[in-house]
Simulated assay, not measured.
Amino acid sequence: MALVPAQAAPVCVDAGQGPSAEAGGVGGTGHAPGEGGGIGGTGARLGVVGVITGFGSLCVNGLRLQYDSSARISENGRDTGAQALAVGQFVSVEVERTGDALLARDIGIVQLLEGPLSASPEGGRFEVMGQPVRLLPDAQVQDGGRPLQPGDPVKVSGMRAPGGLVHASRIERAPALELASVIGDVSHDNDVPGIDGLPVEGALGEAAESPTRQLLARGRWDGRVLRILETRMDPSLRFADRVNNVVLEALVSGRLDDGSLNGCGLQVVGAAAARLRGLAASDLLDVRRVRMTGHIAPDGRFVAEELDARLRGQPEPVR
């Protein structure tokens, strides 16, 4: 196994330990949504979306998420088991609060790209099915003990920046991969249908059902185009209509004060008393890694009650 050196992971806390700067200030005890805690009291439902930083329970966004055999675990919408979970994966977790514990009821592993490498990795830059991929500074690369080569099937977990570039938190060799897949915005470059520029053939649907307006397409890659066998909504925020609040890690660009801030396929606006950490509302952000606590409004906007821009592992500038 070859690992890119990782920076220190954020502190992993229980729901009742109070706000934590390392955890992005998402603690709090018994606050109802909108009252400043962001988690809610016993019985509250919460969505936690971000990178796995540790185990001994599941550590995501600085929160300790407990889970047992009753939790549903899936990978790009297909059922799997706990053995599939790994540090560095980007996951989407539906959580229920019980006392000071956060119990994961539904854990979804999100792989932005599944398919063959189309170029030799160079200096933290990869290419999968023609799509450029950049490694985040704290990314992990699981190559199975030998260097990755063009044609090797891989899974890429991480975040897309506004504009579509993939920033990977984990890349792993996937020798048993049967079908390729991609998650992103539907595009029409030069009248050629695609997903964030990756050419596809076949019906594109269901994107409108996702809060992010993004789509997961799965099929066979022929070296030029992904021939679609199945589509489904982006699984990242599949629980949006069932949870009180969401703790979301994302790459964002734009300004909060003029309504141009966006990330994870969502427009981001600040709540009336939003708490900002490491930025001002007038700051122009350019692919900044942030952690946000808030809710998804009926019009699809993410209303941030707290936004923390002090996260480690910021992406390298794209040249």
Rank of each mutant, 00 (worst) to 15 (best):
E206R: 14
E206Q: 13
E206P: 00
A207M: 03
A207R: 07
A207Y: 03
A208W: 12
A208C: 06
E209C: 06
E209S: 14
S210K: 00
S210V: 02
S210A: 14
S210G: 03
P211V: 10
P211I: 06
P211W: 07
T212F: 01
T212I: 03
Q214W: 08
Q214C: 01
Q214F: 02
L215K: 02
A217D: 03
R218P: 01
R218Q: 12
R220P: 01
R220W: 01
R220V: 12
W221K: 10
D222E: 02
D222T: 12
D222M: 09
G223C: 05
G223S: 05
G223E: 06
R224Y: 01
R224T: 13
R224A: 13
V225K: 14
L226C: 02
L229H: 15
E230F: 13
E230P: 03
T231H: 06
T231M: 06
M233R: 15
M233W: 09
M233I: 10
D234Q: 07
D234M: 07
S236E: 15
L237F: 00
L237S: 04
F239H: 13
A240L: 07
R242M: 10
R242Q: 15
N244V: 00
N244E: 11
V246G: 02
V246L: 07
V247I: 10
L248C: 06
A250T: 14
A250K: 09
A250S: 13
S253W: 10
G254V: 06
R255M: 11
D257P: 01
D258V: 04
D258H: 06
G259H: 07
G259R: 09
S260W: 12
S260T: 15
L261A: 04
N262P: 00
N262H: 12
N262V: 00
G263W: 03
L266H: 12
L266M: 13
Q267C: 03
Q267G: 13
Q267M: 10
V268F: 02
G270K: 02
G270D: 00
A271T: 00
A271H: 03
A272R: 14
A273V: 11
A274G: 10
A274D: 04
R275A: 14
L276N: 07
R277C: 05
R277S: 14
G278P: 08
L279V: 04
A280L: 14
A280H: 15
A280F: 14
A281G: 08
D283V: 04
L284R: 15
L284V: 12
L285V: 01
D286F: 05
V287W: 07
V287Y: 08
V287C: 09
R288L: 01
R288M: 00
R288E: 09
